[in-house]
Computed example of a mutant assay.
Amino acid sequence: MSSADAVPEVHPATADGPASSGNAALSDEGSTPHPDAAAVKQTLHRYLQKHRAALLAKLDGLAERQARWPVTPTGTNVLGLVKHVAGVQAGYFGAVFGRPLPDAPAWLDATDGSDMYAAADETLDDVVAFHHRSAAHADATIDALDLDARGTVPWWPEEHREVTLHRILVHMAYETARHAGHADIVREMLDGLAGDGDGNLAEKTTEEWAAWRDHLADIAERAGLRELHA
């Protein structure tokens, strides 16, 4: 995809798509003034699972080339985001708590950016399978430990390395949501698929989305001209 490519037509993700498995109905967890640790852990875990599902859903329907295609100057691509999150998840819920992922791939400890793209000898299915394996291992750690279980993050500054499961659950929910958002934008740039079917995307026709974008572009142009003449 280049700057000369046409803007893809928007087609919102459906409510019954892959992401919907992470969009569990609101529950009463966390609604009490002083929830117990089990309820807090359940809430954090559910949000992590929601964002995982939203991220993986961005691969649905993509061919190998599309899934790998870099759409930003720094090479951001959907498959690379899924691989990166899977690797980060394996580290934070694995080695940090003395529960390293068995048979971890060599790239897991690499610092050359190889976690941000699928290599030529890796397939889309390979990356998705590793993400599922990483998630299952993380879930086992979450289930086995209490929120105040202690761990050590060796790649963090020394004064911040000592952590709890609570801290890591918050960190990984944030990390996964951040990259799911990246993937959402990358996917929209590739073929126009937008949102995750949770009802937060405005309902517009293709023509209405085109008019909306033109409206925003017009505002940007006029703001730029006003700045030039200020």
Rank of each mutant, 00 (worst) to 15 (best):
W69T: 15
L26R: 14
G195K: 02
H229V: 08
R187I: 01
V186D: 11
W107T: 03
A180G: 05
H166G: 04
K204Q: 15
S20T: 03
A149H: 05
R150H: 05
H171V: 00
L81M: 12
T72W: 02
H51L: 01
G80L: 09
A211P: 07
A220K: 06
Q89I: 03
P105C: 09
S21R: 14
K58D: 04
P70I: 03
A19R: 01
P18I: 02
K83F: 08
A19N: 05
S2Q: 14
E162N: 13
A217E: 08
S2F: 08
D36G: 11
W212S: 15
L81P: 07
P157L: 03
P73R: 06
V7I: 15
R178G: 01
I219G: 10
Y92S: 05
T43P: 03
H182E: 07
A104N: 02
A149T: 05
L48T: 04
A120F: 04
P18Y: 01
D191P: 01
D125V: 14
L193Y: 05
A210P: 00
G181P: 02
V7G: 06
R161D: 08
A19I: 00
E64G: 12
G98I: 02
G80F: 06
A24W: 09
S3N: 12
A180L: 01
M172C: 06
V127M: 13
L81Q: 11
D191Y: 01
L169S: 04
D5A: 15
L225T: 10
L48Y: 07
A177Y: 05
P100G: 08
S2V: 12
H171F: 13
R222W: 04
N23P: 08
L62M: 02
R68P: 14
V78E: 06
P154I: 03
T123D: 13
P102T: 03
L101Q: 14
R68E: 09
L108G: 05
R222T: 12
D115A: 15
W156H: 10
E122L: 09
A173N: 04
I142S: 08
L55A: 07
D121A: 14
D109N: 06
H215S: 14
D139T: 08
A15T: 10
G61T: 01
I185Q: 07
A173H: 01
V170F: 06
P102N: 07
Y117C: 13
